[in-house]
Design a protein around this nucleic acid. Structure first.
Lengths: 153, 153
DNA sequence: TATTGTTATACTCTATAACTATA
DNA sequence: TATAGTTATAGAGTATAACAATA
């Protein structure tokens, strides 16, 4: 936001003073707020990799040789969307594409650098997770995961 | 997604068969999944208005005459971002801009059509909310809201 | 015929910087 | 000088349609 003069804390109070109408009691809305708060914290902690990109690295790490199309299915994106994302990871030297036995396909592998960055990202994510879970007891965290699971199915 | 041949249920099984690695236990990740599931259901139910757009209508409805800049602050977007969003709502006849006493400002009001569409959207959202809350008891819903609040705080 | 990766293209949502008119 | 709205522009992230290579 440009011209940030009023500090966030004051803006938040101003915001609460004004009536937000029908939203605050809604699960969907509060879920969105919580997710956005967590995302901001994530973006600040995992330098240069979006949650989506980290998800790709994790999936490739767990499924070395996976093809672009099967990766696209796994993360529920179009396979054309994968091309740019993988180009990006490849140009950063994090993954490699190897032509498959079925020569239409590319198998995907993490490079050494990719494994290194993923390891660092996972440690940052673990710290992130501890920060956001810090306000919950272990029992509350279990409870929250169980409740979210009922919603996301 | 293009060329959707495998049904979602099968894809989901296939996805679980492959190892997703480090993600499943993470609060941040599960929050994102739940939020995405809810968003998909929302998009299917509130015809033609994104959650963000509905948020603008709700805020203007609750704060008639609010200026563009104060609206932008309330929803934590840049005021330049508001211009396009409000142009869109105005061109659909849902809001009007009226020049303020301070002639730099535009006050925002819902039109009759805007109030009508908002009412319909809120009913759709209520149905949406009932669907996603249907798997929770009233106590569980209260619990979930409280836990989310500790995170988003 | 069908599938894989790719390209061209476009849409949504977001931001920054610079402009204008007003204060 | 400072603020409100606007414009020009750009960058993520996403999708659809069509194409060449391959099966």
């Amino acid at each position: 936001m440009s011209q940030q003069i009023v500090p966030d804390s004051l803006k938040r109070i101003e915001r609460r003073r004004l009536d937000q109408g029908a939203l605050p009691g809604l699960l969907g809305y509060r879920l969105r707020l919580a997710q956005q708060a967590v995302f901001r914290d994530f973006a600040a902690s995992v330098h240069g990799l979006s949650p989506g990109r980290v998800g790709l690295l994790i999936y490739i790490d767990a499924n070395p040789g996976v093809t672009q199309s099967r990766l696209a299915e796994a993360v529920e994106r179009d396979r054309s969307t994968m091309v740019g994302a993988l180009d990006q990871l490849q140009s950063r030297g994090l993954i490699e594409r190897r032509r498959g036995d079925d020569r239409r396909t590319n198998g995907l592998w993490l490079t050494r650098a990719g494994r290194g960055l993923l390891a660092r990202a996972l440690r940052a994510i673990a710290r992130h997770e501890r920060r956001i879970a810090a306000r919950l007891s272990a029992a509350q965290k279990r409870q929250l995961l169980a409740l979210l699971d009922r919603i996301a199915g």
